[in-house]
Nucleic acid binder design. Structure first.
Length: 339
DNA sequence: CGAGTTTGACCCGCGC
DNA sequence: GCGCGGGTCAAACTCG
């Protein structure tokens, strides 16, 4: 439920089971995050350091149309930060805007989620190639893989921008206003909890998300979004109150850019959903070569600002557009622990 | 019957 | 080259 954040805490968290670099995932992901005081005091996962008000809150960033990278920067992930690693991947614009403020929000900027998946456009390709693979094998099999490889060969596999966040929740799959279809589940190494894979069921929407429970803190659900919704939140969703809550905002967002990036929105849908059981959420961001302009009117989520005084700490500088192009390089400096 | 889930098999990238 | 682990597919199954 949404509770107004009273104060934020800031801390480091190790999440090595969450790293997504595919294989060998042995690198550790460090996250820096902010958590609201909604977290029951005493919660081991979130402690300490005082929140520096000079940092922009996640919500604020989003409201300002901030992209992943800028977000990270705003959260104090300075280029010199040794605690936060990040990977900059994907060429897509970051999911900016579309978010309402985060009561119960813990923001994290992290990184290290590297990844393995394909980007939106590529996804269809990969899907196809897989089908090819199948067909070919049936036909006496040859080459299906080849096609795949050829495709990847020349160009590096593009990666979707990812956006991860941790949520204190009793339920694994959080309602976020979109419709998801589960397409896989895998056991996670070193974790008793499986990871579930979901795809947005909307036609042509290639957004995927992974949901897993933190083995370190079973009360925490880690959700990683990949890709960007190219459609608004389906309002007719099984009576989804959250969807209804945000759809108007979405519709009010005139720019295609905004319409195409709903991550944060998902997030907040989670947080505000009356039945979400969410106690706390922490954000993680990664990737992108942000080229998106700040497009989301802050007024869209003004109600959150009202509820959260911290959201007024800062706003995006007018030159944000430029920063977007700069920030990624900053992140790259921190990707030392992985590629 | 359509939509969504489960689950075993398979592919792929990466480290050794 | 091999093995491991993550990610995806798709047939079978479940549910409304």
């Amino acid at each position: 439920m949404s509770v107004e954040p009273k104060e934020l805490y800031y801390q480091d968290l190790v999440l090595d089971h969450n790293n997504q670099q595919g294989t060998g995932g042995s690198s550790t992901m460090y996250e820096k995050h902010f958590s609201s005081s909604l977290i029951p005091s005493g919660s081991t996962a979130y402690d300490s350091q005082a929140f520096d008000p000079s940092y922009m809150s996640f919500t604020e960033c989003l409201q300002g149309g901030m992209d992943y990278n800028s977000l990270a920067t705003s959260f104090g992930l300075s280029p010199s930060s040794s605690e936060v690693f990040s990977s900059v991947e994907g060429n897509q614009k970051p999911p900016e805007g579309d978010v309402a403020g985060g009561s119960e929000t813990l923001a994290t900027l992290n990184s290290s989620i590297s990844s393995s998946s394909s980007e939106a456009g590529a996804e269809e390709d990969s899907g196809k190639s897989k089908k090819d693979r199948q067909v070919k094998t049936e036909e006496g099999g040859e080459i299906s893989k080849k096609g795949n490889k050829d495709k990847k060969k020349g160009e590096k596999k593009q990666k979707e921008p990812r956006f991860a966040f941790m949520t204190k929740s009793e339920v694994d799959h959080l309602e976020d206003g979109y419709r998801w279809r589960k397409y896989g589940q895998k056991a996670v190494k070193n974790s008793p909890y499986p990871r579930s894979y979901y795809r947005c069921t909307t036609q042509k929407c290639t957004v995927k998300k992974r949901v897993e429970r933190s083995f370190q803190d079973p009360t925490t659900v880690i959700t990683t979004y990949e890709g960007q919704h190219n459609h608004p939140v389906p309002t007719s969703l099984r009576g989804n109150a959250a969807a209804g809550m945000f759809t108007p905002s979405l519709l009010a967002t005139p720019t295609p850019l905004a319409a195409g990036s709903n991550f944060p929105q998902d997030l907040f849908l989670h947080m505000h959903h009356p039945h979400s059981h969410i106690h706390n959420t922490l954000f993680t961001t990664q990737s992108t070569n942000a080229t998106t302009a700040a497009t989301t009117p802050s007024s869209i989520y003004s109600h959150n600002n009202i509820n959260n005084p911290l959201l007024h700490t800062h706003y995006l500088p007018p030159e944000y557009g430029l920063l977007q192009d700069i920030v990624p390089s900053i992140f790259q400096n921190k990707t030392h622990h992985q590629n």
